[in-house]
Design a binder for these strands. Structure first.
Lengths: 92, 92
DNA sequence: CCAATTGATCGTCGAATTACGATAATATGC
DNA sequence: GCATATTATCGTAATTCGACGATCAATTGG
């Protein structure tokens, strides 16, 4: 990852949270510590493929991490990245 | 404005800050208290019309307010809305 | 090894975003 | 009233987003 202007870094993180489905996913993961993809799909009124795309966007932003766990994929919050966003917002 | 699900409210505010130019505008206004449109344009590598569009997006989100001041338009941060976003992020 | 389960990826479509130049609107100052 | 300055809006083109169904890939259980 090349070094990023802070405004770009902030914008990238903000944009990752710029969709209600992604906000709900993050909120769910914050409350659950970790969650398998299928459970996340069950919590949203969206097709599995759509949720998968949102998960990909969140993962690319660094806000969540994921790992294969048997036939499933487990996701969780990357608290240091989320903390970074909070930090950037507080000192904006 | 109809009542909004909190995740949608959060997403709307996050999306408003989901572009580096808008982050820079907000940052400038935080530091300056208030600023006339022309000064904002001078701080960004973008055409006047593009900056005007970004200002409109920020105004629609509620994060900034604006008021005509002679032939100019003065913009400033709406701290209660920005505070609301901070609050939502902290208790996410 | 096969069928079933789980999740990612592909292809596609309509809608939204971002950028710009050109133009319109408004206020000021002469 | 008129020219100037300032900002918003319009029209447009290129790109990205968001949604879906269909399909592919990988793992598990039998």
């Amino acid at each position: 990852m090349p070094e990023l202007d802070w405004a770009e870094e902030f914008a990238r993180l903000a944009r990752a949270l710029g969709h209600p489905a992604r906000v709900r996913i993050v909120s769910l993961l914050v409350r659950r510590n970790s969650c398998v993809c299928g459970e996340i799909v069950d919590h949203l009124p969206l097709a599995q493929s759509t949720v998968s795309q949102h998960l990909k966007i969140l993962r690319k932003s660094g806000i969540i991490d994921g790992e294969i766990d048997g036939p499933r994929v487990c996701y969780w919050i990357n608290h240091s990245v989320l903390g970074r966003l909070r930090d950037l917002l507080l000192r904006l």
